[in-house]
Nucleic acid binder design. Structure first.
Ligand SMILES: [Mn+2]
Ligand SMILES: [Mn+2]
Ligand SMILES: [Zn+2]
Ligand SMILES: [Zn+2]
Lengths: 148, 148
DNA sequence: TAGCTAACTGAAAAGGTTTTTCATTACGAG
DNA sequence: CTCGTAATGAAAAACCTTTTCAGTTAGCTA
């Protein structure tokens, strides 16, 4: 299976002087196989299909590293905020489906004018922001209402 | 001390059929005395100045109630996301100072156009968003760099 | 004001999650 | 292939949050 996205991400580890281990491959596979935020525990469970004895501690350590390398981004969820989705390096946002949790990354960010207003009104020098958007994905819009 | 903001908030409990207890008063005092997000543990500590044996469990329960009454809002912080600030009912955002954590609530929200763009690009029907802004407050802008 | 009762409380325990420690393993340079 | 180091899993510790339960308190009624 020569998955191009997998290879690209896998190389990020090496490119920054880190080892490309089986547990790390398993975590990549788990993250690539889904389009919704996964908790560390979920990543461990799914990752064990690829690395039988993948440990939860390793998942935490790998996510911390991937976060530093901007391969992954923490997503704040309504309950707790400790899900993770794959991310493009740099400033992006995510839209999460409130029914099935499917997530899509949004690359542009036109908040400039609004943030200028905020700066003027508050006297704060704005240095960053965290925006998460919730909605209903195309699939779920065509589903009958609340199932399960 | 007839603090008007305190009285207004205190009445919210009664207005919704809840009791106005000493622990709840203490939590209000703690939240009113500061302008930065406080964790449940911090609220307990500060609240104990007003109610000596304020329990942490009560803080959790009261925050849950206040959140339902829109008296308070959970703020997602870079590390963990379980601080709380007082909030105006309805849709608002907060700007948090990255140095001293001072927070100001921002009432307007001009994300409409951007969210329309997102809807078009993703096919999602947008139902809500969570925006947190970080910056440097006016006071900290006049401070010499990293102290502490 | 005194009495009553449901709402509320704190302590303890249970349940989760995240971090630390440490002996062992495996990546990958040489 | 060999070796040194980064990385790993298990166990334990440290935290954080929720549940349970017996006792207390707020606020209504008389
Ligand atoms: Mn943005
Ligand atoms: Mn969060
Ligand atoms: Zn969906
Ligand atoms: Zn500040």
């Amino acid at each position: 299976m020569m998955d191009h996205r997998f290879d690209t991400l896998a190389h990020e580890f090496r490119a920054h002087g880190h080892k490309l281990t089986q547990p790390r491959r398993a975590i990549l596979h788990a993250l690539l196989a889904t389009a919704k935020p996964l908790s560390p525990a979920e990543i461990q469970q799914r990752g064990q299909d690829f690395c039988h004895d993948l440990g939860l501690v390793t998942v935490y350590r790998t996510l911390e590293l991937m976060d530093a390398l901007e391969m992954v981004r923490a997503v704040h969820l309504a309950d707790g905020c400790h899900g993770y989705v794959l991310a493009t390096p740099g400033h992006t946002h995510h839209v999460v489906c409130e029914r099935c949790h499917a997530v899509i990354e949004v690359i542009g960010c036109e908040l400039g004018d609004f943030l200028d207003t905020v700066a003027t009104r508050t006297g704060y020098q704005i240095t960053g922001h965290w925006l998460e958007i919730s909605g209903v994905c195309a699939d779920c819009q065509h589903e009958p209402p609340h199932e399960a």
